[in-house]
Amino acid sequence: MSDRRLEVDALSKRYGDTVALDGMTFDVRAGEIFGFVGSNGAGKTTTMRIILGVLAADGGEVRWTGVPVSQETRSRIGYMPEERGLYPRMKVGEQLTYLARLHGLGAERAAAAVREWTERLGVQARIGDEVQKLSLGNQQRVQLAAALVHDPEILVLDEPFSGLDPVAVDVMSQVLREKAAEGIPVIFSSHQLDLVERLCDRVGIVRAGTMVACDTVDELRASGGEELLVHAPDAGEGWAVGLPGVTVRGVENGRTVLALDEGADDQAVLAAALATGPVREFARRRSTLTELFRHVVSADATTSGENEK
């Protein structure tokens, strides 16, 4: 049997003179949670819509288990669009049942799946309510139920955590972990990089329609090098400017964040900090995913112009 993974291979897409995707390439492996991150307009939603067949690519290919995806393959994908696709005047239970039946589930199995996911996601008490009468957070839960109700083989989720309270974030995170443990490839986009860092096995960073970094969180953070955190309360704003091999990245909670080139002398930095007065903290750390993301996307401030929110 072919390797159970979703492959996105050299996708290209243009809107007139605007390049939305330029050789977009990555894969999502069986049992893996893959974080898909980038600035607004970077190409994330366009890529997901091509995976689902909502848009056609100008070039490239999407494959599942080594075979180009077909309509039959796409019927086995659980998709959660960023612009929610629920019928606002339809009741929650009726809508989920309809979607389950549309994907081929029989009446009894569909009813059981609707019960399971509305209970699991905490909206069972709203099953008889119209979607438009739900809070945005509960609409989000129902949308996730819609992506899961037909027992999909692949999950593609566009900003699934948007608008959720911390409890709902925990529930959704646990559901995604469980689905990955069942061997399902899970890809989701998010601007909540701290959540991506905690949840994902691998992360892909997109800029201007191209995948510019893709690896495990640990490897990505290691590629960003080490930072030096210095808390010198009496130091002025520019105390570290001009130190050899040192770049000032900013100030974080009163601490100066410095990047050191290879071979830079941290003791010279310490001496410069001490020259201003007491030093309360002087510590090395790896870059966070958020800091790495800022560094990567700032390398090209021009976006693809895709109409994403």
Results as ranks from 00 to 15, higher is better:
residue 96 L to P: 00
residue 152 P to T: 07
residue 90 M to R: 13
residue 162 S to P: 00
residue 90 M to F: 12
residue 82 E to L: 06
residue 155 L to V: 06
residue 96 L to V: 01
residue 167 V to P: 01
residue 111 A to L: 06
residue 121 L to I: 09
residue 144 L to W: 01
residue 118 T to D: 07
residue 141 R to P: 00
residue 97 T to D: 13
residue 170 D to H: 15
residue 160 P to L: 03
residue 178 E to Q: 15
residue 140 Q to G: 10
residue 90 M to V: 09
residue 174 Q to C: 06
residue 162 S to E: 14
residue 112 A to G: 05
residue 96 L to Y: 02
residue 170 D to I: 15
residue 165 D to Y: 12
residue 151 D to W: 05
residue 99 L to P: 00
residue 125 A to W: 06
residue 137 G to D: 10
residue 115 R to F: 00
residue 86 L to C: 06
residue 167 V to W: 10
residue 91 K to G: 11
residue 97 T to M: 12
residue 117 W to R: 04
residue 121 L to Y: 02
residue 107 A to L: 15
residue 135 S to G: 12
residue 88 P to A: 08
residue 129 D to V: 01
residue 110 A to S: 14
residue 136 L to N: 14
residue 161 F to W: 09
residue 146 A to W: 01
residue 85 G to V: 05
residue 123 V to R: 03
residue 170 D to N: 15
residue 93 G to Q: 08
residue 159 E to R: 10
residue 168 A to V: 07
residue 87 Y to V: 11
residue 167 V to G: 06
residue 174 Q to M: 07
residue 128 G to L: 09
residue 102 L to Q: 07
residue 159 E to P: 06
residue 108 E to I: 10
residue 88 P to E: 05
residue 102 L to C: 10
residue 124 Q to R: 13
residue 131 V to Y: 08
residue 125 A to R: 14
residue 141 R to L: 14
residue 112 A to R: 15
residue 88 P to V: 04
residue 137 G to Y: 08
residue 147 A to L: 01
residue 155 L to M: 08
residue 153 E to L: 11
